[in-house]
Amino acid sequence: MIKAIGDAFSDIRSGFRLRRVWLALAREDIDDQHRRTRLGPLWLLVNYLAFASIFIFLFHRGDTSQESYAAYAATGLLVWLFISEILIQANTLFLREENFIKGTTLPISVYVLRLTMQSVIRAAYAVVGCAVILLVSGAVPTPIWLFSALALLLILLAAPATIIIFAFLGAYFPDSQFIVTNVMRLGMFLTPVFWMYSGQGGFRMAFYHWNPFTYFLEIFRIPITENMVPVQSFLICGAVVLALWLLALVLLGRYRKQVVFVL
């Protein structure tokens, strides 16, 4: 296992040395998707705003008892969309990169970082949208919001590890792409993205407490909506990120040269 982790680190080091490659490719990927459109990548901002506004309108419906609902939904959606995109895209990553994996000696981490970068660019537009909604809903920034920034960093740190795990899962178990897509589709409703948990029991309690996504949403959301630091959620997320990285490093070290044979 130690050798595998050492190999994984050397792959990641080479990946960082080749950062120009994945930075350039990620930029091209985003540009390609909007090449012919008038708004270009601004569509990413429009998409987020449209999505968030519709859900805020549908779920809130003028209920004045929850003043910060717009902020609650906007922050939750931002993190959810990032996580969901990472998981779904990661699952088919090696299949999409098959020609490169079979034809070049680029380290696997180049593909992982390319997808991470793509998702970060998309999320950056959503962050602008989220800021607009927070501004319109009257939220006032406080120093506690810095913990939300820290949360984004932690989520970002989890991204490459998650991509590595799901990319290998998708390569060795191709059916998983349909499972992951469906789970994420349902997950949006089983995770407190739009609904609030107020201590009741039953299914909601289970979906709230036993759902790792909840804690990643909360570390970003609670400093903004409740002006407090969710210490327990931060600890849980920190532990999850550590576990993800440990598993990702072992997989990367052990299977980075094997994956070419299953594509």
Partner: peptide, 19 residues
């Protein structure tokens, strides 16, 4: 391998070179 149809020839040279 790696040529992108939407990018110009010049940009493709850069991308291929980086790869």
């Amino acid at each position: 391998l790696g040529f992108r149809k939407e990018a110009t020839g010049r940009r493709n040279i850069v991308l291929r070179g980086l790869i």
